[in-house]
């Protein structure tokens, strides 16, 4: 298969991924600049005595919302655990797989030890199962059904596609390896293009919102 006179794989790892990375970087910068450039309210209330410094409070806020606080009372923990599983799973796949590390090394010049392919494959199956479980819950739980918009489903799809195409490529299933690899890279390009404009942007925003809430609550002396 050829695109613009080049093989699909050359297209995917050439213009497609390069354009997608440019959209990703510029899009994320645009989102962050347009957000952080907004007017900021100044808190003029008198802070409680002995509260931590703003950077410490920000870090504490980021840490604190990693899970449900102890003593909060009964909560369904499926969402928390499942969320952890696919987030960690994705991180293991992205940074632990040798080929991914080599790709990132080509971009940033950094390398690190990687995990055996069998471990990555297992992580990918677990992540896939976790993402499917998240989708099933989203489509069946009354609260999640009400909250969900197209953004949620598109974000799910562009996240799951690289996992599926990656597994197919590693397993050489369904088509020639070059075609599967090209589809995998194209699915990542799609993820990168969608990232800044959909809810995947939470990967950056999470540090801002948790830090700001952490600082507000610390100023008040709230210990949660």
């Amino acid at each position: 298969m050829t695109v613009m006179g080049m093989s699909l794989l050359d297209f995917a790892r050439g213009p497609a991924i390069n354009t997608a990375m440019a959209v990703f970087v510029l899009g994320v910068l645009w989102r962050l600049v347009s957000l952080l450039g907004l007017p900021r309210s100044v808190d003029r209330s008198r802070p409680k005595a002995g509260v931590p410094s703003a950077p410490m409070a920000a870090l504490a806020g980021i840490w604190r919302h990693m899970g449900t606080p102890r003593g909060f009372g009964p909560m369904s923990m499926f969402q928390v655990f499942n969320g952890w599983i696919f987030h960690v799973g994705l991180a293991v796949i992205v940074f632990g797989f040798a080929q991914h590390m080599l790709f990132l090394k080509g971009l940033f010049g950094l390398s690190w030890p990687v995990l055996p392919t069998s471990v990555i494959t297992l992580a990918a199956y677990v992540t896939l199962a976790s993402l499917v479980a998240a989708l099933v819950r989203r489509m069946t739980h009354p609260v999640l059904r009400l909250l969900s918009t197209g953004n949620d489903y598109v974000s799910w799809l562009v996240t799951v596609l690289p996992v599926v195409t990656g597994l197919l490529a590693v397993s050489h299933l369904g088509a020639r390896y070059e075609t599967l690899l090209a589809l995998h890279i194209l699915s990542i390009a799609l993820l990168l293009v969608w990232f800044p404009f959909g809810k995947l942007m939470h990967a950056f925003l999470v540090f801002i919102t948790r830090a700001e809430t952490g600082m507000t609550y610390a100023r008040r002396g709230v210990k949660t």
Binding site: R40, S41, L205
Partner: peptide, 17 residues
């Protein structure tokens, strides 16, 4: 419209927790 509020509004992942 203000940075804190807009960050909060843009950050919701609709998890329903």
């Amino acid at each position: 419209t203000e940075e804190h509020m807009n960050a909060y509004l843009e950050a919701c992942v609709h998890c329903g927790q």
